[in-house]
Write a protein that binds this DNA or RNA. Structure first.
Length: 368
DNA sequence: ATTGGGGCCCGTCAATCGGA
DNA sequence: TCCGATTGACGGGCCCCAAT
């Protein structure tokens, strides 16, 4: 894959850029032209006060070695290639190179870095939203289906506790929100009653996020519902062709992590209000709520609807994936910036140490 | 007040890779 | 081989700011 394939190798405090920037040249994680000379570099904490790091080595230590050197002796094994370059051959580095040469991923890169090298750097949280959703369910109606162009919200929490066996639905009256950027789908919350009566419809406004909270965690796990993402393409001008009018896809994550999709009949008023929708546990899907993979499709119209539905699902998932990817990329860049700052500070420290050692040496030579 | 540029974010497409 | 995940590239919209 183009892009970050070779870049992340620079993050381990490279010893020999040549060997790391061109992993393909050697064809393996180990340089081919290494001599048999093996150096052992020992990082020794010195007694100089107010020096955060003192590393007695010709090799620029990695961030991990810095941290370890502050408290203990660290041994780093290096080898010398044919041109006099020192090449570190830690098993960890070998492993990392192998991993990174297989597939670059911001998540993998950062997690590798944060676990192995920089305990201070936060890991990319995997599926944070999913974990956070254990006690809540969010449904999102994309803002592009809004026809009024206004931002609204649902911020009123109803104090009534839903019956434990029912899936609560949260709702409330729209409230004005500050102007948001174009893509922001004003996420709001509310709470309400969850009725299994199919005649009981809740009114929400398209372009909003409504959160469905469980009375307790067990309720959700027993029902197998953790997250719900609601995408409406019914009457949105952008995606009117993508799905038949009045259909909304509801994505939810089950307790075992698998994702399921259902379609829910929805109608949207010209003002952008969802006139009716139902959300139920998958085990009790009523008439009118159809699983996303229907069987027995015969007519061309059904085929078109099915393909449109699949396309909508694909786009929705890719939208989420792109969002996550950008988030990881930002974390990655932040990590790089942190690394740069650390290395700059380290470089400064080493320069200072070199200067003081030179002065000490000159002074000693003069006195002799 | 208008305008143009830069930055940021998003959605979408396409390519690639790894696992089943 | 197929499918899902990942990510670069592209285009578009919005916001901010400086210049006019």
């Amino acid at each position: 894959m183009p892009g970050f394939g070779g870049k992340q190798l620079e993050m381990d405090g490279s010893i020999d850029d040549k060997s790391e920037d061109s992993p393909s040249s050697s064809g393996s994680s180990q340089p081919q032209n290494l001599s048999t000379v093996v150096h052992t570099i020992t990082a020794v904490p010195t007694a100089i006060p107010n020096q955060p790091v003192q590393v007695q080595s010709v090799i620029q230590p990695t961030q991990q070695s810095v941290i370890q050197a502050a408290g203990q002796i660290q041994t780093v094994q290096v080898e010398e290639d044919g041109e006099g370059h020192l090449v570190r051959t830690d098993p960890d580095i070998e492993k990392r190179r192998e991993i990174l040469s297989r597939r670059p991923s911001y998540r993998k890169i950062l997690n590798e870095l944060s676990s192995a090298e920089a305990p201070g750097i936060a890991k990319i949280e995997e599926d944070k939203e999913e974990e956070a959703a254990i006690t809540s369910i969010q449904t999102t109606i994309p803002s592009y289906v809004q026809t009024s162009g206004q931002y609204g919200g649902y911020c009123i929490k109803e104090p009534t506790e839903p019956p434990s066996h029912q899936l609560p639905i949260i709702y409330g009256p729209p409230v004005p929100l500050p102007p948001a950027r174009m893509q922001d789908s004003s996420k709001v919350r509310g709470i309400g009653d969850a009725s299994q009566d199919s005649s009981s419809y809740k009114k929400v406004t398209a372009g909003q996020t409504i959160q469905i909270a469980a009375a307790n965690q067990n309720e959700l796990t027993t029902q197998g519902l953790q997250t719900i993402t609601m995408t409406n393409a019914g009457q949105g001008a952008v995606t009117a062709a993508a799905m038949p009018a009045g259909t909304t896809i509801v994505q939810y994550t089950q307790g075992d992590g698998s994702q399921q999709f259902v379609t829910v009949p929805v109608s949207i008023s010209p003002a952008g209000e969802v006139q009716a929708y139902q959300i139920r546990a998958p085990s009790s899907l009523p008439a009118g709520v159809v699983m996303a993979t229907p069987t027995g499709i015969t007519s061309p119209q059904q085929l078109a609807e099915e393909s449109a539905r699949k396309r909508e699902l694909r786009l929705m998932k890719n939208r989420e994936a792109a969002r996550e990817c950008r988030r990881r990329k930002k974390e990655y860049v932040k990590c790089l910036e942190t690394r740069v700052a650390v290395l700059e500070q380290q470089n400064k420290t080493l320069i200072e140490e070199l200067k003081s050692l030179k002065e000490l040496y000159c002074h000693k030579a003069e006195t002799e």
